[in-house]
Design a protein around this nucleic acid. Sequence first.
DNA 1: AGCACTTTGTTAATACACTTGACAAAGTAG
DNA 2: CTACTTTGTCAAGTGTATTAACAAAGTGCT
Lengths: 405, 405
Amino acid sequence: MLSAYIRYLPSQNVKYVNKHAALDLIRFAPGGISRVALAQRLALTRAAVTSIVNDLIKTDLIRETKTRAPSNGRPPIILEINEERGCVAGVDMGASHLTVIVANFGAQVLAEKEQPFKIADGPEECIRQADAALRSLLSTLGLGLSDLSAIGAGVPGPTIASEGMVLAPPIMPGWDRFPIRDTLEKLWGCPVSLNNDAELGVLGEWAYGAGRGEQNLAYIKVGTGIGAGLFIDGQIYRGATGSAGEIGHMTIDENGPLCACGNRGCLEALAGGRAIVNLARTAIQSGRRTELSANPESLTAMDVSNAAARGDLVAQEVLAEAGNQLGIALTSLVNLFNPNIVVVGGGVAQTGDLFLEPIRKAVLKRSLPAAAHAVRITTSLLGKRSTGMGAVVQALSIALHKIAS
Amino acid sequence: MLSAYIRYLPSQNVKYVNKHAALDLIRFAPGGISRVALAQRLALTRAAVTSIVNDLIKTDLIRETKTRAPSNGRPPIILEINEERGCVAGVDMGASHLTVIVANFGAQVLAEKEQPFKIADGPEECIRQADAALRSLLSTLGLGLSDLSAIGAGVPGPTIASEGMVLAPPIMPGWDRFPIRDTLEKLWGCPVSLNNDAELGVLGEWAYGAGRGEQNLAYIKVGTGIGAGLFIDGQIYRGATGSAGEIGHMTIDENGPLCACGNRGCLEALAGGRAIVNLARTAIQSGRRTELSANPESLTAMDVSNAAARGDLVAQEVLAEAGNQLGIALTSLVNLFNPNIVVVGGGVAQTGDLFLEPIRKAVLKRSLPAAAHAVRITTSLLGKRSTGMGAVVQALSIALHKIAS
DNA sequence: AGCACTTTGTTAATACACTTGACAAAGTAG
DNA sequence: CTACTTTGTCAAGTGTATTAACAAAGTGCT
């Protein structure tokens, strides 16, 4: 009720807004959408929709596909995005991995690549690696940079999207206020969007993954660090300075292990990648039988995760403990935010219920009943692609809307 | 960018939306607003605004007031809400107090009343008391129920505003799914809105208090319980089932005191009204010199608060400890929500910096720097009226928009 | 097979609501 | 007093929707 009217402030003319709304409705509709359904969603008449859809068909961005079996009466014609209209890329520069995805306008992945990467190497070196990876991936498809209409980029720090840079990023030394977007746009010769990796994760899961179409959604990325992307009432929520969702430094245990941020007992220090490794090492040093003791010095969280999936009891206990701590932290998020769904992503989360069940138990035990019962906690459907697919969604937003204008 | 177009779904014709947006802009503009400024905010021309404003003037909801001193050129005419056009009421049914406010259409308080109250007495008894208080207050103004255009009501539980009832409220026995709004509408013969008290608190502070006009705002109410209202991107944020903002049962210390909810170490058990009393009693029993030892059995949090304001060292220490615990909890909120401002309300918070300074210290120490520096932590400007004034805002929303239709 | 009915999509006339361009109104400055 | 500026209004023109009617593509029944 409050200010609902003020929110409608068209900076473009009415038809422009309606056309772009229709394009987004078509794009995010699983299985396409008919003109009649568009009219309903847009609160317009069928006649108005005819005009708008005809404009979009002229741009070749959408096309008529099959008709649906009619219940009774004329079968509706289904409209979908024309996937052959062009290509975009998503570039996920993570703390320790680089993922590059090339997709068509229908958001279908044409090729992808992941490689080791250190965001801490600084902007010039990281951009050089991302560029080389992108060009290499494109060449496997017989494509070049000029075939990309737009590119979405993700980084592990708080971004000011409008400025195309990060602000005081905790784990990105040398990147503070570096003109990331402008640099990439010059290098790649097409429009680039820049977002925080967890934001893109929630976007990817909302658009095409486990949280598809949900209204209030949190995406938790469990990696070296732990971050959350928040999707509130149909929008990414960034907060006042772009740092919303910082869950990794939530105090879980005041007397817990020292965290990289300087405090004690942060979630990251209890359930992040390093914490999982440390828990495993402690168990090894106490003489527990586990396949992990083969090489404790080079242990990774993924080693623990894989061993757990293979039935290793110690690894399973470590994951359960980390899951429990994450569940304790999620109590706050669930109580404050009251989401429909929490999607847990990152490599460790792919073990599924071994990690998720302790999370669910802790949330159910510790959250208020109303919020606990309202939330579904699930693993990512996009696997390690959540952020990369979110970057693809951002790139498509730029590309499609630009062509439609 | 994402779905920005889809958000514009006018369920009314365009002029209706613009007229109501103009009304809200006028209403929430401190000191009124000119037609030229309206045109800017609405992205319309001066000519279009003339037509809209003339319609609103015909309803007698707004009027032209003084002109402002011109910098150079014609002085703009200031438009304001016509405060004499009618009256509304705000009824705040809290856990232990009932507050009733009668205000005019300009949101100026004409009369108010507060009395002891127990929400746990159940809906019939509570509604009876609220009704009597409202009628009594109106009679001091020579008014009756028929003089009210609408009424806003607040309760301390998770509300589904569209249903006009509360859902599984933790501290409101007997109220679950009771048709509160429908009952009040029949009893009072005018439209009634129903909202959670913390939601109304944040609304009141946003509209007329310390958070006026802020984009991302949290209001913390420290009473017997502790709750938060969240205001995100221009809207109250309720969550999936209306329970967003439940901060009182956030785990601060796993080994802390038992909370009424059954868990240990909840914020409410460490910093709520009962916790403050318990901390004071512990100090008394350990032999500390304090004016509070005069009558420990009937001690209230307000007694502690007032003694602290008078310089009592023990009382100040108790407040500082409660403030510290609240600050620890606010770390999570600040990290997750990255607000511009946190407004702390409720009786205890009126002692000001004695309570706020420990909060600020804990937030600054424990939150990520970006979020900690972006947030201003302040006490409520509306004092104990935050929720009641939020209820007035809701009532005005109903009344003004109905007349404008 | 033909007809009645239903739902979907289109067309052209009409209605609505804004913009444009010009002018009036109310100030300041020289 | 004149020139200039900003604010507010008016009427003609423009943009974009709605309405009413019809065409199109099915199902179901006789």
